[in-house]
Amino acid sequence: MADAKDSTSATDTTVKRRVALKVLATTLGAGAFAKAIAPIQQFTASTNAQEWLQKHYRELSSRELREVLARLEAETKQKYGREVTIEDVRPQAGVQFAYALNLSVCIGCRRCVEACHQENNHDRASHNSYIRVLEMEQGSMDMERGRADYDHPVRDEGKFYLPVQCQQCENPPCTKVCPVEATWKEPDGIVVVDYNWCIGCRYCEAACPYHARRFNWRKPEVPAHEINPKQSYLSNRIRPQGVVEKCTFCLHKTRKGELPACLEACPTGARVFGNVLDPNSSIRWVLENKRVYVLKEELGTRPRFFYFFDK
């Protein structure tokens, strides 16, 4: 407080008293602040140093990745009480995924929504799912006239149903905006999120024109016996709180040659999935022989998710 005396005419004792008062006030203020932000401890307890220091997925060496997967498996056991396996399933050479959906036969039963909910270990309380089905008016493609909250026996007269999930765009607006490259497009066309790298700014959620992304507004809760134990790092492992997630075409299944959960659940066979690079695949046949269209083509996102009608 050397300079205090240059501008005040106070005596030394007043200065000392003021210093004491200021120290007291500062201490009180600091104490109150510590008390105010005490709930942070609950947050810090939910994470740890290894997780905090973890590198970006694409920078992890094989050994580091193995350690991360083992740690995540142990954490799932500890937090959710379930033995799970978390794999790193890589894209296959010569495979480019695409999806097509037949709007003539979709009846809007939401079985795909349920299958997604279970397969991908979604939070039970919010009943989250990557798929949203719009009930549309026959004779209109205007989503303005659709609604997602229908709750009556389906299919209803004069209606058709439009399930919407991640379109795995060729030109994804969501990956472009991410400030930390926590989301990117993989070589097989699937847009993924590194849940351990995402900072939760939700810019991607604002950028997506298809309502495909979801944010973990709280820690996801799934009862141990309902957890799907076959998990992968980039897809259906239980997500941390405060990060963004999205449909990955069930890459933990599809990269092993299996069909995605939503397709297997579809009772009408409205869904067609496969490798567009294979000229004999069902998806190729649909793309070549049906009149397909994509959602919001005018935005130039070039989706890999196609819709078609039989008649």
Binding site: W52, E181, A182, W197, C198, R202, G242, V243
Partner: peptide, 25 residues
């Protein structure tokens, strides 16, 4: 507004992955 403010360092150029110049953020 961040869901994970603890991960702020992911944005630091050099040690994080700062998505510049692509991301407007």
């Amino acid at each position: 507004d961040l869901g994970r403010p603890d991960r702020f360092w992911h944005m630091l150029p050099g040690i994080g992955r700062f998505h510049w110049p692509i991301s407007m953020l």
